[in-house]
Simulated assay, not measured.
Amino acid sequence: MRSHSCRLLLLFICWAGFSTAAAAQTTAATDPSSGEPGISATLDDGPYVTYGNDELIARWVCDGKPIKQRYPATQWPVTIPARCGYPRDLRIRAPASADDRLPISGVDTVVAVSDIHGQYELLLRLLQANQVVDAQGNWKMGKAHLVINGDVFDRGPKVTEAFWLLYALQQQAADAGGGVHFLIGNHETMTLYDDLRYLNDKYWRVAQLLGTSYPALYGQDTVLGQWLHSAPQQGQVNDMLFLHGGISPQYLQLGLSRQQNNDRYRASLGLPRYRVKSDPLYAPLYDGKTSPIWYRGYFHPGELSQADVDAIARQSGVEHIVVGHTSMNHIGSYFNGRVIAVDSSIKHGINGELLFVEHGRMSRGLLDGSRAVLEDRELPDSDSHDD
Rank of each mutant, 00 (worst) to 15 (best):
R2E: 03
S5V: 15
F12T: 14
I13T: 15
A16C: 12
F18A: 12
S19F: 11
A24M: 15
A24W: 13
T26M: 15
T30A: 05
S34I: 06
G35I: 13
G38Y: 13
S40W: 15
T42H: 13
D44L: 01
D45G: 03
G46L: 02
T50W: 09
T50I: 09
E55T: 09
E55D: 08
I57T: 08
I57E: 04
W60T: 00
W60L: 01
I67D: 05
K68P: 04
Y71N: 13
Y86A: 13
A96C: 07
S97F: 04
L102W: 04
V107Q: 06
T109K: 08
V111Y: 07
V113K: 03
D115W: 14
Y120L: 11
L122C: 02
L122T: 09
L126D: 03
M141R: 14
H145W: 11
H145Q: 06
G150D: 07
D151P: 07
D154Q: 07
R155N: 06
P157W: 15
Q171P: 03
A174P: 00
L183H: 05
I184G: 02
H187V: 04
M190C: 02
M190A: 05
T191N: 14
Y198T: 06
L199V: 14
A207G: 03
L209Q: 03
Y218E: 00
A231S: 12
N238K: 10
L243R: 10
P249K: 09
Q250C: 00
Q250P: 00
R264F: 13
R264V: 01
Y265M: 04
G270P: 07
V276E: 01
V276Q: 03
S278T: 08
G288R: 12
K289H: 08
P292E: 06
I293K: 12
Y295T: 05
G297I: 05
F299E: 05
S305K: 02
Q306L: 10
Q306D: 12
V309K: 01
V318R: 01
E319Y: 10
H325S: 00
I340Q: 05
D343Q: 00
S344H: 04
S344L: 03
G349Y: 09
E353W: 05
L354N: 07
L354P: 04
L355Y: 01
E358W: 00
H359G: 01
G365Y: 02
G365C: 07
L367H: 05
A372S: 10
L374I: 02
D376R: 11
E378C: 03
D381W: 11
